[in-house]
């Protein structure tokens, strides 16, 4: 059978993917001040990858993004639990967050909050979970 040519889709995705990924990162990072956060950001990133899956096949996508999503889920959980347990080192209750301004050589003055690390854990878990589910179902015969 001749392969259907979906050049329009492929090209459009190349452009769109960039925007979606960027938007999802924006939503994630802005979460503490504006609507958004790890959950919806993660879902949106996963949405971008799903778009890739729809356009290409699973093999290609795994080649582009050689990520084991189950390990990504584990890393996410590790981030979340690590941030939560980190406060114990400073003799503070579990899940006490710290924030403050840090001066970094390249970026200059930066407001840092450990809740962002926790949110990053949520982000990774959501991406990992969504992709595991979709990929598993998709690969199933």
């Amino acid at each position: 059978m001749r392969k259907t040519n979906n050049i329009i889709l492929e090209t459009a995705v190349k452009v769109l993917l960039f925007f979606i990924a960027l938007y999802s990162v924006y939503i994630f990072t802005a979460g503490h001040y504006y609507p958004g956060g790890g959950f919806i950001g993660g879902l949106m990133t996963a949405g971008a990858i799903v778009l890739l899956l729809i356009t290409y096949d699973i093999k290609t996508v795994t080649k582009i993004l050689p990520v084991n999503y189950r390990i990504l889920t584990a890393i996410g959980l590790l981030f979340a639990i690590g941030t939560s347990a980190g406060s114990l080192i400073y003799d503070l209750p579990f899940l006490t967050h710290a924030f403050g301004d840090v001066h970094l050589p390249l970026l200059g003055e930066l407001s840092i909050h450990t809740a962002t690390l926790f949110d990053l854990g949520v982000y990774f878990v959501v991406v990992g979970v969504t992709m595991t589910i979709i990929q598993t179902i998709g690969e199933d015969e």
Binding site: H32, Y33, Y34, G36, S111
Partner: peptide, 12 residues
């Protein structure tokens, strides 16, 4: 908590 999105601050 140094945040303005109350929902997210409650969540994390």
């Amino acid at each position: 908590a140094a945040g303005q999105n109350m929902v997210n601050v409650i969540l994390v």
